[in-house]
Write a protein that binds this DNA or RNA. Structure first.
Lengths: 122, 122
DNA sequence: ATATCACTTAGAGTTTACTTTAAGTCAATA
DNA sequence: TATTGACTTAAAGTAAACTCTAAGTGATAT
């Protein structure tokens, strides 16, 4: 699959896909004799993973480290697990903070709906 | 309350507090004759709100607009409510994406714990 | 008195994650 | 054959949100 199709499929730009490859998150993607990238099914699975994690705010540097260990095979299993647990903790904290803000927004909108703003400063 | 105390209380730096003020999110904070900021209870409440929303990833530009409308009084109630609803939607989408990533991380860690990695590529 | 410490300012610098630019290759269509 | 369109590269540029630097003021401790 060519880069523009992949970009479309995952709603990323071709620039972003090449950037991820430069950073070592994906690939190196095999190229035809004309130098054009040809993404395999495995590449697509990896992009899907990266996209999901990036959408959650996990950093490029973490993904890079994790995926490079992944490529080194079984001997890195323990370290990879540790990294995942660490990132899960960070993610959980962010999730909780966001839930709190979400609840607060809901509460405020509710006050607006009930014309009860006068009782609140913020 | 002086800036360093406020910074400590909210686990922000004094630079960040001055930056928020420069950007019009808070203040202008009243200053003593020596030019030193003296934060009021109302200032603190507002900082708490800003911190909560920033922790959830809401942009400075939104907070700036919202809080400036807030300062303009009752005539902006309708617009403020609209902004909140819009931001709530954005936040909800992020929350869902993060929940998805969180579930995925949990699942992966579970696979690592069960030595079942061989069955999965990613 | 002098040093230390917390504060002040304007403006420059940093980090992260892209995004754009410039210059070029190659295949297909008018 | 010329141009259109998708692709390629390296490197520079951008946006957001801080963060740091330099230079200075004023109160207090030695």
């Amino acid at each position: 699959m060519q880069i523009s199709e992949v970009a479309k499929k995952f709603d990323l730009t071709t620039d972003t896909l090449r950037y991820y490859e430069r950073e070592g998150l994906i690939g190196p993607i095999a190229k035809g004799k004309n130098g054009i990238r040809n993404y395999t099914e495995d590449d697509l699975q990896r992009i899907q993973f990266v996209k999901c994690m990036r959408a959650a705010g996990l950093e490029i540097s973490f993904l890079k480290r994790y995926l490079q260990l992944f490529d080194e095979g079984d001997k890195t299993v323990k370290e990879r697990r540790e990294i995942l647990v660490e990132q899960r903790k960070i993610l959980k904290e962010k999730l909780d903070a966001m839930q709190e803000a979400y609840d607060r927004l809901n509460y405020k909108i509710d006050l607006y709906d009930k014309n009860m703003l006068d009782k609140k400063l913020m």
